Simulated assay, not measured.
Amino acid sequence: MFDAPAELLLAVPEYKVPLPGGTTQSQNDVFALVRHADQTCATMIEGKVNEPFDKTVSEWLSIPKDGKLLRLRYICELLGLDPENPPLHLRYQLLHRSASALIEARRFKTDEAAMIVHSFSPTSMWFEDFARFANLLGASVEPDQSSTVKTKSGQRLRLGWATGNADFLAA
């Protein structure tokens, strides 16, 4: 996923990142600080087997709650997307996990942020949703490689799909 050998500096499971517009935080499977060459990266890792990336933005918005529009606007602006025309067809989880990475990259003053999907699906289930999301941000992705985009704010965001070892699925 990184251009040089990576060194894990810190990993925190079930890491929560506050987002404006409500009381629910973005709960990431793993937050990791990673060093590669002379760069440090704030990384959010989303583990998957066969489950989807939760609801589409359209489905998420259909359940009225205070602050959802504020939250979506904030996430869109952070990712460099048009807040007046949010990507209703994309999976909301991909948006807020990537936003979490950018938020923590700012907080920890890292060189870049990353949102990595660690998929244990033997068929790469839901990769198409991830690829659509990456394409919207200007990235072209392939399994087991990463792609980096620069947000409008100047932050670098690395997106990647890591294929997990299927042996870990056997009990």
Rank of each mutant, 00 (worst) to 15 (best):
D66Y: 14
Q93I: 00
K109F: 15
T24F: 12
F168Y: 15
T56E: 03
T151V: 06
V12T: 15
K65V: 13
V12F: 15
L79A: 01
S124R: 09
L72S: 05
R97W: 00
V17L: 11
L95T: 00
D129I: 02
Q93R: 01
L33E: 04
L8A: 03
C41Q: 00
P20F: 06
P87Y: 01
K65G: 14
R97T: 09
K68C: 07
L137I: 00
R97I: 04
S124E: 06
H96I: 05
P18E: 11
F168R: 13
E104W: 11
A139V: 09
A4N: 14
E112D: 12
G47R: 01
A99F: 04
L69T: 10
G21F: 05
N50D: 12
S140I: 07
W161D: 07
S119V: 00
T24C: 14
L81Y: 05
Q155K: 06
T24L: 15
P18C: 11
V141H: 00
Q145L: 14
L9H: 06
V49Q: 08
R71N: 08
I75Q: 10
V17R: 10
A101K: 02
M44S: 08
V117Q: 01
A99D: 11
P52Y: 03
P87W: 04
V34F: 04
L69M: 12
S140F: 09
Y74D: 13
G160H: 02
T56Q: 05
P143R: 09
P86N: 05
D54C: 14
D29G: 03
A131F: 08
E128F: 05
F2P: 02
L136V: 03
N135D: 14
L102T: 00
M115H: 11
Q27T: 10
R107W: 12
L159Q: 00
R97D: 09
V117G: 02
S62I: 02
A32Q: 04
